[in-house]
Structures are given as structure tokens and as C-alpha cells.
Nucleic acid binder design. Sequence first.
DNA 1: TCAGCGGACGAGCTTACGTCA
DNA 2: TTTGACGTAAGCTCGTCCGCT
Length: 221
Amino acid sequence: MEDGVVCDTTLALSIGYYGDHVAPKRAKKDDNKKSVTCLDLSLNTHGEEAIDDMENDNGEGMVIYEDGKQSSKNSSDTNKDDDDDDDDNDNVNNTNGVRKKLMLTKEQTKFLEERFKCHPTINTTQKQVIAASLNLKPRQVEVWFQNRRARRKLKQVEVDYKLMKKCCDSLSEENRRLKRELQELRSLKFNQQTSPLFMQLSKASKRISSTEKFLRNKEKT
DNA sequence: TCAGCGGACGAGCTTACGTCA
DNA sequence: TTTGACGTAAGCTCGTCCGCT
């Protein structure tokens, strides 16, 4: 880890985040206006922790290059051995046109995840700070957040689908049960109406009703 | 060998801003 | 000075590719 990187991070921590879960449209030009009044110091803690983690963890899954650049062990021999500062396509090996795969270290991913938990979207300043903290390019940080948002959304869709399916199954079962119950009640009613006892009771009931009516009329007269 | 993960990228859209008539 | 049209830059989502585990 370069000293300058740590310094940059500390410097940038005083520059605020102004949006909460809102895409920072035109962030670049708005940064200067809004960073003055809105402060987000959460990066400070995470940043220092992550930097400490990285500094204390040189031998595990991370390679520190002589020029201060780092990469994962697994991809170190192919990722950063050529110039990092050319353009956004420097993960493409120009000699044979094969795209090189960057794999973030556990520490880098952890740091990014923590940032993502706080704010799923980042502005330009945050992007640069994070990139400096992790020795990545702002573009890589940007892409990571884009992919993270997309995959979180995908996961949420899957969760929602499962929930809805469960709900649908439950309602279907309830519907079947109610239909059965209705059928049973209908058949019960039909059986009652056609049984001899029901016929006799019905006739008796009618007779009683008419007798009561007759008596009431007689009382009136 | 194959599947899944995840980094990268292009297309297309939206939004904010600057310029100019 | 104000206003609407237009160009540009930056960021986003979505879909896809493809290296790596």
C-alpha cells in the first residue's frame, strides 16, 4: 500500500456524500456544490479498517507490487504486469487479444460490500476514494457497483418469485379445500331435502306455521 | 468437462448543464 | 434578460460475453 494512497483517502474523507440511495446524477459537477454541506464520515472507519486489513494481510490472496499496485495471487501473473494507466481496456492483453480476468481479493470485496451496504450508489468522489483505497481504477469500482446492483436486483426477483409461488400454492390449496367443503354442503342439503323424515318435518313445520297464523288472526278479531 | 460466479463492456435511455439563436 | 432547441457528458439499467474456480 502506498503512503500516498492512504493520504488520498484521508483527504477525501472530508468530502461528503450527499445522496442516500439516490443515483447521483451529474455528480461530477454537483460534487463541488454539495460536498461542502453534506458530510459522510462512514467511509473513514471502513476505509481505515480495510486499509489496515490490507496492510496486515500482504501474504493472503494479495500481491503488492513494487510500484504499489496490488492484485490477487491467482491472477497476479496476468493482471497487472503491464501498464495500468493506459485506458479502460488494459485488462485486455493487446498481444493476443485475450481478456484478462481481474479477481478482487477478499479484503477488496469486503470493503466494497460494506460501502454497498451503506450506499448502493456512489458519486464520483466516493468512487475515486474507494478506487484509491483499493488500488483499483474508478471505472472498476463503478462496474463493481453496477454489477452488484444488477445482481442484487436479480436475487430479489428470485426471492419475490419464490414467495409469490408459495403464496399461490397456498391459495390454490385453500381454494381446493373450500370447493370440497362447498360440494359437501351441497350434497348434504340435497340429501336432507329428499329424505322422508325431512319431508315430514317440512310438512309439520308448514302446518304449525299456518295454525299459528290462524290463531293470531282470530285473536285480532 | 461443465456450471456458476463475477468482472467487463456495449447499447440505449435519462438527466443536468452549457451554448446559441 | 428570458426561453426553447440542441449538443454533450456522465450515470444508470439491461443484456451479454467470457475468464476463472
